[in-house]
Computed example of a mutant assay.
Amino acid sequence: MINIRQLTKHYGANPVLRGIDLDVAAGEFVVVLGQSGAGKSTLLRCINRLAEADSGTLTVAGIDARTCQDTRPLRRQAAMIFQHHNVVPRLSVLKNVLTGRLGAVSTLSSILQLFRRDDVALAMQCLERVELAHKAHERTDALSGGQMQRVGIARALAQRPKVILADEPVASLDPKTARLVLQYLRDATRELGITVVCNLHQVDYAREFGDRIVGLAHGRLVYDGDTAGMTETDLQRIYPGPATDVQDAAQTDPHTHSTALRAGA
């Protein structure tokens, strides 16, 4: 579904991605771990062309994402879930989800916010998947942060994409809400066969929800394997620095003492 070879990206003189090779299969839920500045967000932004890679090859759902002149088909196939929700607060929950259909309607319809009956039905189905159908006609700014992120998931699902790219989708949420949001994302995408690449900081969440973990450090891929096989040595490569830094990354709930650093934990 996603095939990346020797992908590089610089911001000025600063190399952010240094020859990334990565394959993600259809229906796979891949979690990308790494410190801030490791290149996780840049990788996702290159996949859907929010950022332009400098070199390498990249195909997404059969689309050459590096050379395609029209990015609209690519972005229809690769939906994005952002860290800070990116909802329109004054719009209703339903209308926010319907923005996921804008790529499939005419320009005039999108300007006038005119949607077909089947688009509305699809949006309601997506809200049902994240258990927010009862909030459909409420203003989105009346929701909690976790509910807003569930609206973001529903909006991404409404695109009917083949790939969802989630950039730190639970960074601002408490542990209980974060797990709930990741559960909704994983369950919905598994039921629909959607491929997910999800950036996270929390190792426990990666092990709990991911089919596979990819680790980045200083713009290089330093780990690629299943969740059970990741050892403390692997974590040290993903999070280079003092051991306490690795423990902090592995601990998801400040009220617990388990760091889940044991091999295969």
Rank of each mutant, 00 (worst) to 15 (best):
H85I: 01
A38C: 04
L91T: 00
A171R: 00
M80I: 13
K162I: 00
T140M: 09
T99Q: 10
V120H: 08
E28T: 11
L43Q: 05
Y184D: 08
P73L: 10
F115V: 11
A79E: 06
P15W: 08
P161S: 04
I20A: 00
T259K: 00
I47R: 02
D211C: 04
N96F: 07
I81G: 11
I4T: 03
A154G: 05
V32E: 13
L216F: 02
S258L: 14
M124T: 15
V203F: 09
G152N: 13
L185H: 00
A250T: 03
R129D: 12
M1H: 08
L94K: 04
F115N: 05
F115S: 04
V130T: 12
H137R: 08
R18L: 03
V203M: 00
I153K: 09
I63A: 12
G12S: 09
R190D: 05
D174E: 14
L50R: 04
D187V: 00
R72Q: 14
L50H: 04
L33C: 11
K95P: 12
L122Q: 07
T259Q: 03
Q159W: 02
R117E: 13
R76M: 15
F82C: 06
R101T: 13
L44I: 01
L192K: 05
N14T: 13
Y11G: 09
R5L: 04
D248M: 13
G39K: 03
Y205I: 03
R179Q: 15
Q236Y: 04
V151I: 06
R49C: 03
A206I: 04
R66D: 11
D23Y: 02
H255Y: 14
H218G: 12
D224C: 12
A25P: 02
T57H: 11
G193N: 10
H10P: 02
I164Y: 07
G210L: 02
E28A: 13
V93S: 04
S36Y: 02
H255G: 01
R101H: 03
A243F: 08
L173I: 15
F82K: 11
G62I: 03
P89H: 06
D167E: 12
N14E: 14
A78R: 10
C126L: 01
G34V: 06
I63K: 11
T140W: 09
Q251M: 14
S36V: 13
D21P: 04
R139E: 02
E128T: 02
K40I: 10
T252H: 12
N48V: 01
R5C: 01
L17K: 05
T140L: 08
A206E: 08
Y223M: 08
R220A: 14
L173Y: 12
I111R: 12
Y11V: 05
G241Q: 09
F115G: 06
L43N: 02
A206F: 10
L180M: 14
C68R: 10
D248S: 06
T195V: 08
L165M: 05
E28F: 14
F209Y: 15
D70F: 00
V163N: 01
R72K: 14
T42M: 01
R150C: 08
Q247Y: 15
F209K: 03
R155P: 04
